[in-house]
């Protein structure tokens, strides 16, 4: 049965969508983890959900609403460029209210509840040809952004003071990275759902940083880990009919645990 499933078109679409999302998530993840913005990812994805629910209410494509919601929050967070505790509490406050609004939208929405469930938990097996194309276009935009901004983005992420002194536009880059992150999040929601975006954006990058201190290498490694998690998760869910999102998060977390053990063992040895 597994091999016959592999020949199915919807499986091909799922694998393609998973690969696209894995590449962008892994690539942006390094910067997010280094900037300590994991919580922001969560906020952006939940507000993406609010945007999608709002779009459903007024009869728009939920993906458009989701991208709008994510970009809106990304823009605000980037412009505030808060640090530390202040940022945490501000994000928490915005996130909670946004979710409340999302709940309201869902109650107003008279359509199928599955659409909302899919947003929350992902619906990789239902990806259409058109969606794969859309995912590819957004991914190309994000990757172009990451490559074009790579060095100043790296500089301002690890050493904002030094970067500012060298004339790097630190504030604009903060906005840019949150906008790229918002697009990435809107992508990842379609594969793993709102609640599990962190498993593709944060976990692979966090694992990669345990395995190498070289930024470019860590970034590529995060992409590879995200790829293994999504593709492996999709294939496993064909063999064993549990939710794809579970398998993806399990593989991603497994690699993270191994990376931590490897890192700790290396530190003990040296």
């Amino acid at each position: 049965m597994f091999t016959s499933l592999l020949a199915q078109h919807f499986v091909h679409n799922a694998l393609a969508a998973g690969a696209i999302v894995a590449v962008v998530s892994g690539a942006i993840g390094w910067f997010v983890v280094t900037r300590g913005a994991s919580f922001a990812v969560h906020a952006i994805s939940e507000l993406g959900f609010t945007g999608a629910a709002g779009a459903l209410v007024v009869g728009l494509d939920p993906i458009v609403g989701m991208i709008g919601g994510s970009l809106g929050v990304g823009l605000v967070l980037g412009m505030l460029s808060l640090r530390g505790r202040e940022r945490d509490s501000a994000i928490g406050a915005v996130l909670a209210f946004g979710l409340g609004v999302g709940v309201l939208f869902l109650s107003l929405y008279q359509g199928y509840a599955t659409e909302a469930t899919n947003l929350l938990f992902g619906s990789i097996v239902g990806v259409s040809d058109r969606q794969v194309l859309e995912l590819g276009i957004v991914a190309a935009i994000v990757l172009t952004g990451v490559v074009a901004l790579y060095r100043p983005l790296l500089f301002s992420s690890v050493d904002p003071e030094g970067a500012e002194a060298r004339g790097v536009p630190v504030r604009s880059l903060s906005v840019a990275v949150f906008l790229l992150l918002a697009l990435t999040t809107a992508e990842a929601i379609q594969v793993v759902g709102v609640l599990l975006v962190l498993t593709l954006v944060i976990t692979p990058a966090a694992a990669a940083q345990r395995l190498t201190v070289r930024p470019a290498r860590a970034l590529l490694l995060a992409v590879a880990i995200a790829l293994v998690a999504t593709e492996g998760g999709i294939l496993l869910s064909l063999a064993q009919p549990w939710p794809t999102s579970f398998f993806i998060s399990a593989i991603s977390f497994g690699v993270y645990l191994i990376a931590r053990i490897y890192d700790a063992a290396g530190r003990v040895a040296s």
Binding site: A148, R151, L154, V158, G162, A163, R166, V168, Q209, P215
Partner: peptide
């Protein structure tokens, strides 16, 4: 926990303000 080498920090002083990779 910063995943960066000293060498990378020094290098940014040379090309960290240039666009692209």
């Amino acid at each position: 926990e910063l995943a960066l080498r000293g060498r990378d920090l020094v290098r940014l002083g040379l090309d960290g303000h240039r666009w692209g990779a």
